[in-house]
Write a protein that binds this DNA or RNA. Structure first.
Length: 296
DNA sequence: CTATGGCCCTGGTTGC
DNA sequence: TGCAACCAGGGCCATA
């Protein structure tokens, strides 16, 4: 499930292969993957053919390809979407293929293929691609980027203030903060020593600071390890797996001793989502245990 | 505003 | 061994 670190990895890997390339062909095997123009393969094709990809960016969990005519391709991988540069083993889950060439056909080849491909694979068919002239309209719906310079603990405090709901569903809400999914929400809460069902507006200033650094630390750590390949769903564009799964402290670790205190990790349900906690390091009621749960 | 539940999907797991 | 039921997961939508 590509979350911020996985999408960041994808974007960084893809960038040198896509920027400057021209889309010379598109094949759509599963029209519903095209969210805009909705399921209209012909208009989608006509819109992207001959366009050059000028920038490859990320916003939250979205991959954002800026085209040379002001349009954008915005891609959400959701659960099982993949963007890969090499054809995968089976075609069964291949939904969309982009054929790419250098904008200038005569560019020296130096072993570089004349044409390369970007494949959108998606086993579970939740992923979507939007072709839009107004990417800002979509991207502005998202909350702040947790790794932005400007995102300090004061801003996080402001987001949490006046929120009566549980902490975890709030962290998963992309309109509140962009890019966290189930894995990193659980990992950040563990590092901060906070129970996912804590009411957001009851955090002390110190707890907010802890949460803020926990979020940034886990995201940065995961990016440095090229994301988490937990269930085999996420692979990098070149086919490699991430390595952050080895750093997971609670996600998917039910029954395994907590790395801090040895108490078995528990799996509970919060806001309808599977949630992993150390019941001792992340007490629901204010206690001393959580205090020492500072990120690390 | 918040909570809950259904829906979209597939493939892996569980239960019989 | 076969097969049906169930479930996870992100985001959106409807309902309460």
């Amino acid at each position: 499930m590509p979350e911020l670190p996985e999408v960041e990895t994808i974007v960084r890997d893809l960038r040198p292969h896509l920027e400057g390339r021209m889309i010379v062909d598109v094949r759509v095997n599963w029209p519903r993957a095209i969210a805009e123009p909705a399921e209209d393969v012909e208009r989608f094709r006509a819109g992207v053919l001959g366009r050059r990809i000028v920038r490859v960016r990320r916003r939250g969990k979205l991959v954002w390809l800026c085209l040379d005519d002001g349009q954008s391709l915005v891609i959400h991988l959701r659960m099982s979407g993949r963007l890969v540069l090499l054809p995968a083993g089976s075609d069964r889950h291949l939904r969309v293929t982009f054929a790419l060439a250098y904008a200038n056909a005569w560019t020296p080849d130096r072993g570089e293929p004349e044409c390369s491909y970007l494949y959108f694979h998606d086993q579970r068919k939740f992923g979507r691609i939007w072709l839009t002239r107004d990417a800002a309209r979509m991207l502005d719906l998202l909350g702040p980027e947790p790794l932005a310079e400007s995102f300090d603990s004061g801003e996080l405090a402001a987001l949490l203030a006046k929120r009566r709901g549980a902490l975890k569903p709030l962290l998963l809400n992309q309109r509140v903060i962009a890019g966290l999914g189930n894995i990193y929400a659980d990992e950040a809460l563990f590092r901060a020593g906070l129970h996912p069902q804590r009411t957001a507006d009851t955090l002390s200033e110190e707890e907010v600071v802890r949460l803020h650094s926990a979020i940034q630390a886990v995201l940065q750590h995961a990016i440095s390890l090229h994301g988490t390949t937990f269930d085999g769903l996420f692979v990098r564009p070149g086919g490699e797996e991430g390595r952050h799964q080895e750093g997971l402290r609670v996600y998917g670790q039910a029954g395994i001793p907590c790395t801090r205190c040895g108490t078995p990790i528990e799996r509970i349900v919060v806001g309808g989502r599977g949630t992993h906690i150390c019941p001792r390091c992340q007490p629901l009621t204010k206690g001393k245990a959580g205090k020492q749960g500072a990120c690390r």
